[in-house]
Design a protein around this nucleic acid. Structure first.
Length: 650
DNA sequence: ATAGGGTTAG
């Protein structure tokens, strides 16, 4: 007996995933977007984004001399005798401390961040303190891998230990909060820097903070910060303007986009043009939004020149070009895009001048797909090798996704095969798209095979993907196979009531009530899982059909009895062990006496020995980083203030 | 030696 088609699990799930559906009848049922099919957690998605960013950064910067143009901030006079300590200078990195630094850097390079952080903490109370440079290096690595809670925890630790932070430490922390979508905390850190630190923010502080504010929709605040930059004596930064402009483009606020460009031009000396090409893509989009094509094209000619080698001195990096390219693709000017792309490839003269990068190809792939020219999209995708650009998983996924959505699963699978050949690892997203499409095209077994492959590779399918697979298998009557996936995933996923219920119903429908009860049994055994009233009611209902309604109560009673028994036994053990325990406690107290680290919780033996943790215990998993960040953060700010106080009184 | 120079597709 299969589930009636109209009430498949997926439809049910779609209703569940939209909170509005429960109340508002006019809301159309939402679709599960592919985003949900990819990463196990949002943090993993963030980590991947960061890794990719890092990879892209390996390409050499276009003009390294640009860097030297940045003014270094003037030192703040240090009037207050109680003012916080100045951070150490590089001179501190010598001898033993340099040695320590290099050891920790080695750990970071080996990607053993846990060990690196541990070693850093451990050294804080040793006779060889880590310098702020060492700490920053660890924090940087943690940020790159989105280990936010680890980062905040280490930061809190060094603050408590009165190690003076420098601008980079602040910037890292601000970046962290921005990445965690906590712009208010980022602003708090900025304020702290302004009020407490014996140095000024750097131009990078503003870049990081303003980008974070824009990305989090805090436009007004971002504009305020831009103004503060001038107050601090910094020049107008085209990068900051480009962040603001693309934010307003996203928001459809074309007047602001154009206004910002004019302002930048003014600030840079009122010349004809802004010589940094990064702002022109957004400027053009601003005009496109207003339907002012002519103006958009005029600025295009200014930035890029009507003919090759004939522009007004605007420096166009690959990224600046890509923004223009994308502006064309998204505004019905694909032919212009093609022409520009051609030109970019001609100008590309590595290693001196790089005008094409991976992003260029990605933009063009999207451009072709937007025109439904899929064959050519594949063609241009393949072409990137000639320009020493290597597609990453996201590039592959993007194209695979577009092909799948347009009935070209076969082509998509070919590309999937190429990933393997090129040593690009397919990820959760790749498999999510492929199996989803297989199911849509009724290739149920192939879909299930992709799922299995995913597990075999150690990838972590999320609940949405799991639900989809199980749903499809049950639909075609493969309940046992579905159950086997349930068994593997029940340990790995936090299943919700709906997922439990679905599997139970499927088993009940094929008359496997005992297997259904076995699931209940295991749920009762698992302290992390709660058997809700509703689920109990459901189980009773299913049992009732076979006249076995009492079985659930019996099972639950039996479990209660077992638990009580176990408890009694435990109490007995405790009683027995009491005398011995007193002895142990005394000996460990001795141990603590020598350490005497501040802020310790003396009942946490392991932590003190290996890792002198401050404040409450934290066994925060990366998977719950966002939630624990909330927790972390409360303590974080608190600890930071404590630290400041300590510094003042020191 | 430690932040940052920007984009796109999820």
């Amino acid at each position: 007996m299969a589930l009636p088609k109209s009430t498949t699990f997926l439809t049910h799930l779609k209703t569940l995933t939209n909170p509005h559906c429960l109340h508002r009848h006019h809301t159309p049922p939402p679709l599960i977007t592919l985003r949900f099919l990819s990463f196990a957690t949002p943090e993993e998605a963030a980590a991947e984004r960061r890794r990719r960013k890092r990879r892209l950064r390996i390409e050499p910067p276009l003009s390294s001399f640009h860097r030297s143009q940045q003014q270094s901030s003037p030192p703040k006079p240090n009037q207050n005798p109680n003012a916080p300590k100045l951070p150490e200078t590089v001179a501190a990195l010598s001898g033993k401390r340099l040695n320590l630094h290099n050891q920790i850097l080695t750990l970071v390079r080996q990607n053993d961040l846990e060990e690196a952080a541990l070693y850093t903490r451990h050294s804080v109370y040793s006779n060889c303190r880590p310098s702020i440079f060492t700490i920053n290096a660890v924090l940087t690595a943690q940020l790159r891998q989105s280990k936010y809670s680890d980062l905040l925890s280490l930061h809190r630790f060094i603050t408590q230990a009165s190690i003076a932070p420098n601008v980079i430490t602040y910037n890292l922390l601000i970046q962290t909060y921005c990445d965690c979508q906590r712009p208010d905390n980022a602003l708090e850190q900025y304020k702290l820097l302004m009020d407490e630190a014996p140095f000024n923010p750097s131009p990078a502080t503003y870049r990081i903070l303003i980008k974070g504010l824009v990305d989090n929709g805090k436009f007004e605040k971002a504009l305020e910060l831009k103004e503060e930059m001038f107050v601090k004596g910094f020049n107008a930064d085209p990068v900051v303007y480009s962040y603001l402009m693309s934010g307003f483009v996203r928001n459809g606020d074309s007047d602001r986009v154009i206004g910002l460009f004019e302002e930048l031009r003014e600030k840079l000396g009122g010349g004809e043009v802004v010589s940094d090409g990064v702002v022109y893509g957004s400027l053009m989009r601003g005009y496109f939004i207003k339907g002012m094509e002519k103006e958009a094209m005029e600025w295009y000619n200014v930035a890029v020149g009507k003919n090759e080698g004939l522009n007004s001195g605007v420096k166009m990096s690959a990224i600046a070009y890509n923004l223009v390219l994308d502006a064309f693709c998204k505004n019905g000017k694909f032919n212009e895009a093609l022409r520009l792309f051609d030109r970019m490839m001609n100008e590309h003269k590595p290693p001196r001048r790089l005008t094409v990068n991976l992003g260029s190809f990605n933009v063009m792939v999207d451009g072709y797909c937007g025109e439904s020219r899929f064959e050519e999209a594949i063609e241009v995708f393949r072409k990137m090798g000639e320009y020493r650009c290597n597609p990453d998983a996201l590039s592959f996924n993007n194209l695979i996704d577009q092909l799948c959505k347009n009935g070209m699963l076969g082509e998509a699978e070919k590309l999937y095969g190429e990933m393997g050949e090129k040593g690009v690892n397919p990820d959760e997203y790749t498999y999510g798209v492929l199996l989803d499409t297989c199911f849509n095209e009724n290739r149920i077994d192939d879909g299930a095979t992709y799922f299995r492959k995913m597990i075999d590779l150690g990838l972590r399918p999320n609940l949405v993907v799991y639900n989809r697979v199980v749903d499809e298998l049950v639909k075609v009557g493969k309940v046992d196979e579905a159950k086997s996936f349930f068994d593997t995933m029940v340990k790995k996923l936090k299943m919700d009531d709906a997922s439990y219920k679905f599997m139970m119903k499927a088993l009940s429908d094929v008359g496997k009530l005992d297997e259904m009860l076995k699931i209940v049994d295991e749920m009762l055994d698992d302290d992390g899982v709660e058997l809700s009233e509703e689920l109990q009611e459901f189980v009773r209902g299913e049992l009732r059909k076979e006249g076995r309604e009492e079985d659930l109560a019996k099972l639950m009673e039996e479990k209660e009895r077992q638990k009580a028994e176990a408890k009694a036994k435990e109490a007995e053990e405790v009683e027995k062990a009491k005398k011995g325990a007193t002895r142990t406690a005394i000996s460990s107290l001795k141990y603590f006496g020598n350490k005497g680290a501040e802020g310790e919780t003396p009942d946490n033996t392991d932590a003190v020995e290996a890792e002198p943790q401050v404040g409450e215990e934290e066994n925060v998993e990366e998977a719950t980083a966002v939630e624990s960040n909330l927790k972390e953060d409360g303590v974080e700010t608190e600890a930071r203030n404590d630290g400041a106080n300590e510094q003042v009184t020191a």
